[in-house]
Each structure stands twice: as C-alpha cells, then as structure tokens.
Design a protein around this nucleic acid. Structure first.
Lengths: 95, 95
DNA sequence: GACATATTTGCACAAATACGCAAGTATGAA
DNA sequence: TTCATACTTGCGTATTTGTGCAAATATGTC
C-alpha cells in the first residue's frame, strides 16, 4: 500500500475517530431516510455550527453524502464504500 | 450501543487514524515475528521517543501487545480482536 | 563495576482541533 | 418585501497532540 493511500485511510479513520462525529455516523446508521443537519446536531447536543463542521469533515472523507433539499441539506451514509474500506483494513490486519 | 462503548470505539479509531501510527500497524501486519521498537521506529523515520509514545497509545487501545524480551520490548498485533471491531463497525454502517 | 543498547520520560514548542457565539448567506413562506 | 428557518463562516479560545532533544531508567555484556 503506497503512502498516499495510507494517508487517506488515516484521514478517514481520524474523521471517524472523534466522539461527536462517530455519534453522527451512528445516528445516520439507523436512519433509512436522509437527515438534515438540525436533526443531527440535536443528537450530539452541540451547536449547529459544530455539527456543520463535523458533517463537512465527514463529507470530505466520503463518509456521508449531502444533498440540497430546499433550505435544508440532507445527509446520508455512503454505506457500502465505507464498510468496504473498513473491511479491507480488517482483512489486512488479520493477515 | 451505549456511550462508553462508542467512546472506546472512537478512541480506537483515533489511535489508528494517525499516519505514523497506522504505518506502525501496517509494518506489524507484515511481520510474522514480533518486532522491537527500534525496528519499528526506523520504518517511520521518527525519533525513538516518538515511536515509543505511539506504541504506547496503540497498546492502550489494544491494537498491539507488548512483551519484554531482555532489554527489548517486542510488539505484535492483536489481529483478530481489532479486525473484529472494525468488521462490526462495517456491519453496522452497512446496515 | 563499567559500558553499551533499548526504551521511557520530562520538557518545550508548534500545529491541529473542537467548541460556542455572533454575524453572514441562502432559501422558502407569508 | 418581510420574516423565519437552515446552515455556514469568522473569530477567539482552550485543549490536545505530535515532535525532537536530552536526561533518566532498565537490562544485557564485558
């Protein structure tokens, strides 16, 4: 695995490795329909600006996908893509 | 999933989500025999003190196991345990 | 004991990060 | 156009974190 790839994986894991961000991800895990940021910020009890920034990080790392819906922005998980990356790391670690 | 469990998982992901630490883990992935810290620190081109601290973090999170061998301390991956945690997260995300 | 090797710890420092508030932008509704 | 709602951005701050150097500790060897 080359350096770039490893660096990107590290960024992904770092994005997931923050409590509130992981909480957002878990919240989205249980949602069949996409959720807007207001709904998500209440699940962490943080300011909406904080949720906004966390969601931006998750979007940058490809964890979530954003879609504009009127004045809302609804988020959904990139389920298969992220799951696959985690599994491939698991495979590699297990050897 | 309760808060404590989620917090611990976040800590694990954070431990893996740093470039040099992830590099150490990858180095250990390819080793059948445990490696000492000197060997591992050379793979990241960092000071031995830095490697020592990273390995401590990884040990605290249960990623690696340490064993004293003379004046060395050799490290090995907790392969199945970590792989399982990553897979269970992947399963949860995939839904 | 004297010395070398392996590792940890104390210290200082720079950079990154998470946070809340307040102000700004965007969009829909009245 | 006026207002409300949803979200982002700028700013200041406190905390965490990664780093290297130097000193300390631990353990094997001579």
């Amino acid at each position: 695995m080359d350096v770039v790839e490893r660096s990107e994986l590290a960024s992904l894991l770092k994005a997931l490795g923050e409590f509130n961000r992981l909480s957002l991800v878990y919240e989205l895990c249980d949602c069949k329909a996409p959720r807007n940021a207001m709904c998500l910020c209440s699940c962490c009890s943080v300011d909406s600006s904080v949720a906004s920034r966390h969601l931006k990080v998750l979007a940058q790392e490809g964890v979530v996908q954003m879609e504009k819906k009127g004045r809302e922005r609804v988020y959904s998980l990139n389920r298969t893509e992220i799951a696959e990356k985690l599994r491939s790391l698991a495979d590699r670690i297990e050897g």
